[in-house]
Design a protein around this nucleic acid. Structure first.
Lengths: 114, 114
DNA sequence: TGCTTATATAAACAAATCATTATATGATAA
DNA sequence: TTATCATATAATGATTTGTTTATATAAGCA
């Protein structure tokens, strides 16, 4: 009983997190790609601090993890997160967003270091 | 492309709506039951206007529909909603909440008119 | 008819959210 | 070292959100 309540609470928390166009698209992109902050900045056309703060929220609940590669910090889905399968099932229902990264590649602004 | 953007936007909107413990539990209950406002009030222990406003948000995007039965207004999932399958897939991952209605039945406060 | 019950809407308000600008940190390159 | 690039954090502010109390509407009943 108590466990159920906690789970609903956690589900609501995750849905709230994903109930933002920027974060939802980020997570969908991370489903198939690792991305660094500056790529997100270019994709979403918002300030770098804004992107950083979205990423922090996602990281705070363990949905994504970060890894420094040279001067960049790359983010990826945290497949060990206790709610990973919940999130993936959700993502499967969303349209692919990889074209956004393709656009960066064409512009030559995709980061592919290391 | 434009279609994709719109869909992500709509998905984010629905997730935001469901990213509230009260609304999420409401929708989960409505998956298997029709419920009236006063039942929700008793289940969630918040004011009646609060429940009404949550229901209005869900109704405004077409996720639920209402039907008057005598003095009560019953809410149910709107299976004709364009995003019904998206929502149902989501609900399937959540723990059953019907015990909350069973508790009302035991207390004799479940509404079963008409 | 007037009283009660169920629900919706309006108004108000504290708290949360999402963006921005300014600044700090940390790695790389000259 | 100093300058630059990438990122994080702090401070700020406008907007949104979720609640409450007060009030309106609508049905059922004496």
């Amino acid at each position: 009983m108590e466990k159920t309540l906690i789970e609903m609470e956690k589900a609501a928390m995750i849905l709230k997190l994903l109930g933002d166009r920027t974060r939802l698209t980020m997570i969908k992109l991370l489903e198939n790609n690792d991305c660094c902050v500056c790529e997100f900045v270019e994709i979403f056309q918002v300030s770098q601090p804004s992107i950083s703060q979205h990423l922090r929220k996602l990281r705070d609940v363990g949905l994504v993890k970060e890894e420094r590669r040279g001067q960049w910090i790359f983010y990826s889905l945290n497949k060990n997160n206790e709610h990973y399968s919940f999130v993936v099932q959700l993502l499967q229902q969303l349209p692919d967003q990889d074209y956004k990264l393709k656009e960066l590649e064409e512009k030559g602004t995709r980061i592919t270091c290391c």
